[in-house]
Nucleic acid binder design. Structure first.
Lengths: 132, 132
DNA sequence: CTTGACCTTCCAGTGACTGGAAGCCCTATC
DNA sequence: GATAGGGCTTCCAGTCACTGGAAGGTCAAG
């Protein structure tokens, strides 16, 4: 499949897809005419990248996560260590997103006046319990 | 409070804090000696920025979200519209994080062999249900 | 066989930082 | 009171992750 189709299927701009190839995140085949030819697996990787990047994971983190799937030579303990570390981070992100959600939802449902409400939204928004 | 203390309290590098000021995300006072002087409110804003950026919101999105809190002149309907739109996005992010979590957790608990497992993790990871 | 959409590479620009130089401020010790 | 150290200042340059644009090749339709 051509890059345009891959772009549609993943929501990533073609430019970004080429960039991801340039930095070694995937290696699509080339057709005889020189066009990139994306497999279903390539699309999976790209879709994953689209999601993980949007969730605040760096490109290097994405590379690690992708390697969990793709690298057949990797030791099982190694896989587990990386995956476990990411799990902790994901749980933190989940909690932060939930806090943000509750703050916004509060704002939508309670603050209907013509002016800024007095409720200390910032407390929730910046995390009542000390972070890190 | 000086920038070093603000940096400690928020987990943001001093460089980043100065950058956020430069692009108008906060305006700390200045002490007589020219040093930036951060209030508790400034620290709240910074802590929020630290979180929201880590969750994949762009600086412009963060600016909008901060304005929900800070702008007393904003119309209520406007606030609600922005907050509601962000809620939708947050819910999407929450679902994606949950999917990522389930994939990683599956990897940790099921794939204990010496080699890559056969389970098609990519299906989960790239989202079984078609996105956008 | 031309038009237009899609592809290629390459190079430059942007957003969001990040590092480093040069110099001022402040405390602390000699 | 001089000086050493750490923290602060500005400014300018560099990096990461894209993003836009130019110049040109490919392909299906008319």
């Amino acid at each position: 499949m051509n890059i345009g189709t891959a772009s549609e299927k993943t929501g990533l701009p073609a430019k970004t897809i080429r960039y991801y190839e340039e930095i070694g995140l995937l290696s699509p085949e080339r057709a005889d005419n020189g066009y990139r030819d994306y497999s279903a697996n390539d699309v999976h990787r790209l879709r994953f990248l689209q999601r993980a990047r949007g969730l605040g994971f760096s490109v290097e983190e994405c590379r690690q996560l992708l390697s969990l799937y793709g690298d057949k030579n990797r030791e099982s303990a190694d896989v587990k260590a990386i995956a476990s570390a990411k799990l902790v981070e994901i749980d933190r992100k989940l909690a932060e997103l939930a806090a943000l959600r509750s703050m916004l939802s509060h704002l939508v449902s309670h603050c209907h006046g013509d002016d800024r409400p007095d409720c200390p939204i910032m407390d929730e928004l910046s995390g009542r319990s000390g972070m890190q």
